[in-house]
Nucleic acid binder design. Sequence first.
DNA 1: CTGTTAGCGCGTTCAA
DNA 2: TTGAACGCGCTAACAG
Lengths: 334, 334
Amino acid sequence: MKGRTVTIHEVAREAGVSISTVSRILNGTAYVADDKRQAVERAMLELGFRPNYLAKTLMTGRSMTVGVIAEDIVSPYYADVIRGVEHAMLDTPYQPIVNSGHWSRKYESRAVETLIYRKVDALLLLGSTLPDETLQEIASRVPLVVFGRHVAGLEEHCLTLDNVRGAYLATRHLIELGHRNIVHVRGPQGQQDAENRVHGYRMALADNDISHRPELEILGDFIEQPAYQALSHLLETRVPFTAVFAANDQMAAGARLALHRQGLRVPEDVSLIGFDDLPSSAFTSPPLTTVHQPTYQIGIALASHLLNVLQGRPSRLPAFDLTLVVRESTRPLR
Amino acid sequence: MKGRTVTIHEVAREAGVSISTVSRILNGTAYVADDKRQAVERAMLELGFRPNYLAKTLMTGRSMTVGVIAEDIVSPYYADVIRGVEHAMLDTPYQPIVNSGHWSRKYESRAVETLIYRKVDALLLLGSTLPDETLQEIASRVPLVVFGRHVAGLEEHCLTLDNVRGAYLATRHLIELGHRNIVHVRGPQGQQDAENRVHGYRMALADNDISHRPELEILGDFIEQPAYQALSHLLETRVPFTAVFAANDQMAAGARLALHRQGLRVPEDVSLIGFDDLPSSAFTSPPLTTVHQPTYQIGIALASHLLNVLQGRPSRLPAFDLTLVVRESTRPLR
DNA sequence: CTGTTAGCGCGTTCAA
DNA sequence: TTGAACGCGCTAACAG
């Protein structure tokens, strides 16, 4: 099937030089006389020479790849971060290798091991379910950058957003519109972002003298179906509310459907706000008011930082703000 | 940072055996006396030995990785196929390495080269913009499986779906509901799936004696925004229609918003049908009627086939059907 | 500027 | 059963 692999030896012989010379031309390591250079280049072309990256890596110790592990490639949220990472690396000698952690410690640590085993030069974690100690141990083996997680001792390589504030903004927006009975569809227990958003929600209520009613805090799982069910259930109990703040856009979609099933319109009857600002959220009907995460730019920043670290350049992760994007799913009460 | 890499030499010395013995234990290549085996295993544990995959690959010529190139990782459509591929490989010795082709020949062939350069054992293309000849040339260098493209000479390694029929089903569904003025928001010119869907749309019209009106065929780009604009524009012209068939779900979202902006409700005023059945489409309000693609299962099938080929087992790609999923965005006319 | 030589870490003969 | 020696394809000194 595949034609015999041609090595630098054959190129060298064909061009009448030594293998070192070929290697030099390949890597621009030193000046080479023009005639030899041309002979070598012609030989490479004729023989269809392709350098063996493995052999090169074995020597240099650097593979020019960085491992990227996202909780889930399918999640549109992480996908957009990945897009940023890919674009930032597009015209660099480094190549990202993407893997999923599948929201599980087992698979995530498996992915980590596999990637280190494949000698990636660095690791980028988009979200992580692993405990701090494990992450620290990993960082001792390979340069590590983490998004969406604070890890003790790795502060300068962690990029997190102020989710508390984001949730606060969202909730305050609803309050400013006159809403007081605000449902929060929260993310999974224990998940850092989810907890922070709950926190921001509660803070905004407290700051506006609205008493916190536990029954309005319902549990989703950052995807549509559970959020749909949770809100449907709440609707059955007839607890009154006029607005819903979902902890992410996917759950907002689930919530919206639950409302729709009850004949409740958004925003006429109930205001709805999400979190993340997925690319698709600008195109729901009506377009979703939500908290924007600059995921693409974050991807770019993470990749740039990683590349800097890899090349020994000084670098620090920039800070990103979460901003409220008011579209058409929220409106003043009445 | 990273602790000194420990090699089989050190393990061998620590265990008082030769490197060959260590290698044998590592690969189960031959019987080794029990006491030596134990000594070696203890040494490996103590030293924290991790085999160097590069050196191994350099020797064996097999890297146990397969390259996966999707037009776009971010696309929810391909993401679901990737999920299937990942799951199918999860408990095999093979590992998928995912890359984006960014819908561009340049980047796609770059990705191909990089992956071959990295010695992947096989290549899986999810969609491809490359010409047949290029694909054939690639297939001569490395086992190749292609999804969503028919490639001459590679028939048994291509998985395609009958998009003509899928579009036919969608259009016929609308016709059966009494619609006769049916808009088609088509995908990009020249893209195989897009053309096939246009074809199916026209066939269904013809089979039902509905004359084809070119002005009802408008151009999108498989994403929301252009579809939104195209339909908005059509709406301005006041050409009458009662149903819209979008060539994918993302464009259906764009179309829906255009309708919404004009105060047109789905499905009361206009029926809407999509294509793909993205995971999120079941949760739009109302849930979208669409043509289901079994993307996850397709991913599984592609990966299994690839693994079979890699291991020299006989294998043929199964056929998958496109099925109509009737939800709530379509209803009888009147 | 160029060729020679010694490995990178491991699998695989070939003798013993 | 085991070990010595060689080589996978390439880079990196070291002489010249």
